[in-house]
Write a protein that binds this DNA or RNA. Structure first.
Length: 274
DNA sequence: CTATTTGTTTATCC
DNA sequence: AGGATAAACAAATA
């Protein structure tokens, strides 16, 4: 398992990074929209309407919330993107030749804005309404770095799911938007909590530490990855978690990799006890 | 050739 | 109803 491959999994900061790749095409008329309708990622989308409405228009803004991406057109319509497991957003100079996994391309201002997804686990949404934001954008949980995500909010969520394993609930996008497998492992490792711990068994000080660590890992990830996708320092679990025989950067012990809550999970047996 | 891996959603069972 | 589990998705890789 290569590090390169794990780096492609889009979580909070990777999503911000990808969304920025399209900035180069904002505020220029879209000369042409190319897409492969009928693909799974367009399920439920009126692709004909999307093409007809976006052609000739300008894109005004790109926003992200957790793993959700919304591209706002000048007419108020919303193009939604979710990168799934293998989705990417990139810009290529024109003329652009469509690759086999390029499902959507918007040609604007000398660039093709491309949504590429080899495994089709991603999703494109389209909302032609111009009055208010679509439900998939409106009904989102508080951003983990916003003031709305308070220690009390975290405690309430944990209380509601006190029987679950901590790893499972942290991966739940309805409560922790943007967290994915590597971020959750990083958070639990820094907080010294075993991924299989039952939520209800956490002490008050562990919950407080968990809160601070969630915010810390979100901020660190954005700082390192969102601008230029730098490689995180070796002091993070990140660089060691996929390697067989990888060692805990804090204690040097061999890391454990097992399935927890249905997901491949890495932890340090020295600092994370059940 | 087959088995495995990977994240999310959906379905099903308890 | 919350939670566990498995399947499905598609393609690369071992």
């Amino acid at each position: 398992m290569s590090i390169e491959r794990t780096r492609e999994m889009p979580e909070l900061a990777e999503v911000v990074y990808y969304a920025r790749q399209w900035q180069v095409g904002l505020n220029r008329p879209i000369a042409r929209v190319r897409l492969h309708s009928g693909k799974r990622i367009f399920r439920g989308v009126d692709t004909g309407g999307l093409v007809a409405t976006l052609t000739g228009q300008r894109l005004r803004r790109i926003e992200t919330h957790g793993k959700q991406i919304r591209v706002l057109a000048e007419g108020g319509q919303s193009l939604g993107l979710h990168l799934g497991m293998s989705g990417r957003m990139l810009a290529e100079s024109l003329p652009y030749e469509s690759g086999p996994h390029d499902h959507l391309a918007l040609e604007a201002g000398g660039h093709a804005l491309i949504f590429r997804d080899p495994r089709l686990f991603g999703r494109v949404r389209w909302d032609a309404g111009t009055e208010r934001a679509p439900a998939w954008w409106r009904d989102l949980p508080p951003d983990l770095l916003s003031e709305c995500f308070t220690p009390e909010a975290l405690r309430a969520t944990l209380e509601r799911h006190h029987r679950a394993q901590i790893k499972a609930i942290l991966l739940n996008q309805a409560h922790f938007p943007g967290l994915g497998n590597w971020m959750v492992d990083e958070i639990l490792w820094r907080a010294g909590i075993h991924p299989g711990r039952r939520v209800g068994s956490l002490t008050t000080s562990q919950v407080n530490r968990l809160y601070r660590t969630i915010r810390e890992v979100c901020a660190d990830a954005l700082e390192v990855i969102a601008d230029d996708w730098s490689t995180p320092p070796d002091s993070w679990l990140f660089n060691h978690r996929w390697k067989d025989g990888g060692r805990c950067p804090k204690t040097g012990v061999i890391l454990v990799r097992e399935t927890v809550a249905g997901r491949t999970t890495c932890w340090s047996p020295a600092c994370q006890k059940l």
